[in-house]
Amino acid sequence: MTMDFGQIRRNEHLPTRIATQIARDIVEGRILPGDKLPTEHVLAKGFGVSRSVVREAIAQLRNEGLVETRQGVGAFVTEQRTRPSIRIEQDDLDDRESFRELFQLRLPLEIEAAGLAAVHHDAGDLEKLDGTLAAMTGADKWTSQGIIADLAFHRVLAAATKNEYFTLFIGFIAERISLAINAARAAAVLEEIVEVTIAEHLAIREAVASRDPHKAREAMRRHLLGATGRLGLQLESY
């Protein structure tokens, strides 16, 4: 399968579009540091979407360091000095080579994260991984909820390293990769790609649970190379 990168633009899902709009307002100063974002209800009504879509958009902004959420209070724009100094605009990834380079960065990051997670995870991390896998394999696995669960798996794995920088960078990249997952599903036989992807994630989970970092790294390598192959991309891997 060769990916038509025009599909990524056409398949850009609603949370990303909303997050991009809010991020632009923050970067351009229309929403200031310390400002509280409108409630989920107000944002959902303003954008004409469901609250779950808004919730996912806020999660993306949080991963990018643009907002912080306070339990029971809401989401607030972070101070500029506390934000990561990187930002990748979604338009930049319409280009095949730029997208391949993002995946190339993902390869060493997530392979190393899998190995560290195998060593440092606790029972709570495994429980969360199992929760994402249950969502990936449940009745909603054919829908966008399956994609959300897929990305959540990678974020949970990053958190299991006990290194917050893995969580930050992998979470940041995952939101961009979500568009590729949508495009890959659109360009393949859905049943085949979903079942293969689930099997790859199960193999990673079992390797992490066994506390074998070498096995976990290899399982993640197979998954990422399989994912890039399904996108018609080729990475350098040694």
Rank of each mutant, 00 (worst) to 15 (best):
A219P: 09
T197A: 09
I204M: 10
A184M: 13
L225N: 09
F172R: 06
S210G: 13
E191C: 05
V194G: 00
L168P: 12
R176N: 08
A186E: 11
K215S: 12
I193P: 01
A207T: 01
I173S: 01
A187N: 02
G226P: 11
I170N: 14
A180V: 09
G171M: 03
A184H: 04
L224C: 12
F172G: 00
R185A: 07
R205L: 07
R211G: 07
A180F: 08
E206G: 04
P213C: 01
L179T: 14
I170L: 15
D212H: 02
T197Q: 09
L168A: 15
V194D: 03
H201E: 07
T167C: 13
H201S: 09
L179F: 15
P213M: 03
R221Q: 04
I204A: 10
R176W: 09
L224T: 12
A174P: 01
A207F: 00
I193M: 02
E206L: 11
R211H: 11
A216V: 05
E195I: 09
S178F: 02
A187R: 00
A207R: 00
E175S: 07
R217D: 09
A203C: 10
R222N: 12
H201L: 02
L168S: 15
H201P: 08
A180E: 12
L224G: 10
A216K: 05
A199E: 14
A186M: 06
A207L: 02
A209K: 15
V194R: 02
I177H: 02
E191I: 10
S210Y: 13
D212I: 02
I193D: 01
N182W: 15
V208W: 09
I198T: 02
R211Q: 05
I193R: 00
I198F: 07
I170P: 07
